[in-house]
Amino acid sequence: MLQLTDIERYYRNGLRKTWVLNRVNLNIKEGEFVTIMGPSGAGKSTLLNILGLLEAPSGGNYEFLGERVDKLSEKKRSELHKAYMGFVFQAYHLIDDLTVYENIETPLLYRGIGKKERKSMVAEILDRFNIVAKQDLFPDQLSGGQQQLVGVARAVISKPRLLLADEPTGNLHTKQGDQIMELFRELNKDGVTIIQVTHSERNAAYGTRKIELLDGNIQEDQYLESASAL
């Protein structure tokens, strides 16, 4: 599905360059559930941002579905976001001024989906995530776990082929975290490719592949056969 070749990311600090990612090569196939792990400052979030086209690499090649995407215009990137990607963040990043229903509906608005269809899609996902009762509440009226549920619902409402999650359970209790991870696994079974960044081995165990990042290099890349058994 996506192919990174010699991806670099550095920041200029005066005359010196500080590397965050150093010649990363990575190939992820459709249907994988990848966990990126590593200590703070290893470049996990940067890698995820590059994968999600939120940040451009300083060098290297990024092919997404067979197309070069590392130097796209904002408009093209926005189109790819709309067509293929969903995002989940550690801090949920729900829009405070919108209700649960409206938050989930927003991506559909940007995709120009008709009112009737939007209604049924949102209703369906509210139902699936068991948050129908909360649909008229505002984010600050929800618990962290509930907010993240909404965050995930919002990310997947438009049926993305790739779901990117940056520490999706970082602000949650274990139990709430497990709930989210269960959800991820279900989505993955339905065919959604997932890439998540996390510190938690527990979360990583839900995935099919684990990548260890250290100082901007891939240290370890292993496929987890036992994942489904857990």
Binding site: K75, S78, I95, R154
Partner: peptide, 9 residues
């Protein structure tokens, strides 16, 4: 957030 969700400029 809106941009990430696909909002154009």
């Amino acid at each position: 957030m809106r941009k990430v969700m696909g909002a154009s400029r």
